[in-house]
Structure formats: structure tokens, C-alpha cells
Design a protein around this nucleic acid. Sequence first.
DNA 1: GCCGTTTTCGGCCCGACTGTTTTCAGTCG
Length: 571
Amino acid sequence: MPVQNAEIAEMFDQTAELLEIKGDNPFRSRAYRNAARVIERLPKSITNLLKAGEDLSELPGIGKDLAGKIAGIVATHHFDVLDRLKRELPGDLGEIAALPGLGPKRVKLLYDKLGVRTLEDLRRAVRSGRLRELSGFGEKSEKKLAAALAKPQAEKRFKLSEAEAEAEALLQHLRPSATDGQVVVAGSYRRRRDTVGDLDVLMIAGDGSAAGDKLAKYDNVASVLAHGPTRTTVVLGSGLQVDLRVVPKESYGAALMYFTGSKAHNISLRGLANDRGWKLNEYGLFAGKRRIGGATEEELYRKLDIAMIPPEMREDRGEIALAQAGKLPRLITLADIRGDLHVHSNWSDGRATIAEMAAAAKARGYAYMALTDHSRHVTIAHGLDAGRLARQLDEIDRLNDKLDGLTVLKGAEVDILADGKLDLPDKILSRLDLVVASVHYKFELSRKAQTERIITAMDNRHVSIIGHPSGRLIGEREAYELDMEAVIAAARGHGCHLELNADPDRLDLNDINAHSAKAAGVKLAISTDAHSTAGFANMRFGIDQARRGWLEPADVINTLPLARLKKLLKR
DNA sequence: GCCGTTTTCGGCCCGACTGTTTTCAGTCG
């Protein structure tokens, strides 16, 4: 089993953690963390890069030393530096440091003075009251830790759609307290990440403390974690944490930039400011004590000699270099979409009739909609066999005769069987305008078998699009084991397309894989997989992720007019 | 440990809040 990027990243994170606890050079541990992030989001597998003879020290944040260490990990499945650190500092110090209020310094103190090596050791120390003997620990620390130890930790992230519902209600509550109604959610929410850990709310207001009171009094608040003159932190009933920051008007742009992040993007921007002898923080851009910018984001980016970077791109994945070169992409928007290529009706597990779905598509201004009901294998969804599908095609013909301004394309979401064969015979597939081929069972196949399965499906020339290629359900089911690089390469070779499923529970391909597909020259279909007329509205979540993957209209097939789309679908 | 028209050494983002302290270290984002 080749070493996965995630494993290397995890080893580096653990190394960084232990180095911090040990009190080593903090910049050394930061280097390990930076490298972990770079490796984690790398679209290609490190093992493959090494096989291809690539020089890993070309990667940002990875120098000669780490490149050598990575090669060692790939060869041995072990990281000697980490192994040594673990021998030196045995126990679950990483888990202990993850507890709220505990960082490397205090973990070291607990380790040295009380011999705390495991969570159980810590529990005993808290119970015995010995914790308070330590300088820096008091009654409150003890209570907080006791509470944290009592409940399981699992850090929860919320789906973007869930966070959106919370955010909209919260903004409505806060808006009356804001100057000119200026209150927004920044952070990963504004960057439109597929999941959100907390809501970073930014508000312009004269009295920050009063604004904080307003938040603390929100019906949905379960507990108040902090409440100061400019920052208030609460946890909502759902467990979603909300950080409210109140800033003056002249700092709004700087604060918006700062709290939108990402952290890595901000650090790079600050580097640009430092290069010019300036300082950038959440209050503005400063030359010495003099403020030279801060009211708007546009102004700040301009002062740093780059174009405004869309929030979805602010991940420090090379967007700053692109902006410096004046080569930022014109990201796709909802308005570019001309149709939906994955839609269900009540012929299978959808709730609306074909005519109702078509009317909803037309109401959105679409020129086309592909009806893609399930094939027979998905019995639970009343999947269609060849006979029923043939009858459905006749109904679509009759409907198209009546429709004006919208064309219903004949399609199917055909199951990819375990061996890569399709769930409907070629004879009926050949009568369709497009075939979405998807995996709906046997998720547990080996990486090799699953990859071959999907590539075999693409060998069938009727297959136009691979539906929800990774199979993940956010927060519920991990993606199945798959060599996505190989799938993308095969898609390019076959002239096949990959789906970016816009269902907020799926968002599949994700942003990184969508970017890899674009880079490889594979065009995507952004489709909702709508099972009701309301489902069409999910398109915007797909657009969000497409933008995070730097996709432009030309990278997406359902931005094309119908005639050109049809040509592309036949291969 | 990385990085470089301030380049092979000496920097490395920066501020708010808490708890414990009596002027600040540690944590957090």
C-alpha cells in the first residue's frame, strides 16, 4: 500500500505538535505545519510524484531537508524524527493539547510537574485538585478542563447549507445594531468552503460592547465564551460557534479581508505589505503610524499592486502570484449556467413530474434540462429498465413538442455495476442524448478495483458524464478509495466529462479535484441532481465550489448553448 | 525548517481575550 499524502501530512502535524510541546524553535514546527498543509492539498500523490522523478523541494514550503524526509517516509512508512519525539514525549499529548485552553506550554507544564501523559492522567489530576498547584492554573481552568474532559471532543464542521440557514437568521437579528446595516459573515463561509467550522461575523458599529450584548441575547445562544469591547464569542444551540467582531468604518475593508482569510492567504498578503515597509492588520494598512488604506478590500489589494482576489480563491494556492501577473481567471457565476444535466422525476425517486421539472427549469431561465432517472439496479429508487426508459423517451418527445424555449434532453443516471459494466443495454443507451454513469453500491472495493471500475464504465462510448465521482456524503460517508488522478486522466483520454454535483450534501467533485480536472483539460458538468423542483436552487452551491476550483465558464459544459453542448456529448 | 533584487544569515503575521497575575503569558484565530 503506497503512502498517502494525508498520512505524511498527519506525521508532519504530529511532529509539529510535539516540537511545540518540547519547546523547540517555533519556526521549525511552523515549517512542519506549513509542509503538512501543502502536502494535504496537493492534487497529486507524493508517491507518484517521486516515481516520476519530480523534485519535491520545488513545492512551496518544502526544502531540501523535508524533501529528503518525505522520500524516507515513502520508502519506509516511518518518520524517524516523529518516532524519536514520541519516545521522548510518550502518551497522547496531541489529544491533550487539542483541549480548549490547553496549548503546548501548559501541556509541557502538566507533563513535567504532574506527569500527565494521557487524557486519563489529566482526568485524575483534575479530580485530585492537583491541577491548581500549578502556576497559571486556577479554579476556572480546572472547571473548564473538567467540562471538556467530560464530553467527547469530535470537532464538528457544518455543511455550508446548514451554516447558511443559521447565518441568515443571525444576521437578521444583528442587523439593527449595525451602522448602516453593515454586518456580514466572513471566514470560510464567505470563501464558500464546503464545510464551515464557525461563523466569523463582522459588523460596523459605534459601540462594540452593546453589539456583543445583542449577540449574547440571541435566542439561539447556548453559551457565551468571551465578551470584550470588540469581540464576542458564543456557541449556538446547534453547536455552531459564532465570533462577532466589531470594527470602525474606516477599518471595514481591512477587517473584512482579515476575517475572510484564509489565514495562509493573509500571511502572504502581510508579506507583500512587509516587502514595502508597511504593516497590514485588521485595522488597515500602515506606513509607520500613518494609515494608508483600510476602508475597502479593493483599495487594499490595489495598494499591494494586485487585483482584488475573489474570496473563493483566497487559499494561498497560488492566487497571489496569479494576481500579481494580472492573470486572475474570470470565475464562473450562476448567470453563466444554461441548463441542468442531472435531474430526476417521479418516474424514479423524484417527487415531481417531468413536466413540472421542465417548467421549473424554464422558470430559472434555462435553455435545457437533461432528465436522468435512475436505472434498474437502484431498485429502492424505482430505477427504470429498458422498457420503461423507452416509454419515458416517448413522453419526453411529446413534452418537447409542447414546450417552448426549453428542451428536455433524454438521459439516464445509469448505475456502474461492480465490474464497470453499465446497468442498461447499449441499445437503449444509444437512443439517449447523454448518459450520467454513477456508482451507488459496492463502495468498499479496493482503490485499484474501484478505479478500474469507473474507467471501464468510461470505456463505454455512450457515457458522457461520471456522476458524483468520489461518492462522498459530507459528514456522513467518506469518499470511496479512488485514484482520482487516474480517473481524470482517463476522462481526458476518453473525451468524457466529470460531474460537480451541486447537492450541498455531496459537492462532488470537491474544489481541489475540480481544479485538477480543469488543469488536466477535462471539462465538468455542474449539476444539481434535483429530486424536486426546489432542488434546482442548489446550483449555486455547485457554482461556489467551481469558483473555489478556479473554474471559468469555458471549463463547464452546461454553460454552452444547446447545439454546441449536443456535439460535445457525442463521442 | 524555509526562504531570498534587504540572498546564504536572520528573519519568519499580528492582535484580542482570558485567567492569573499584579504586569503578563498563554491561547486562539
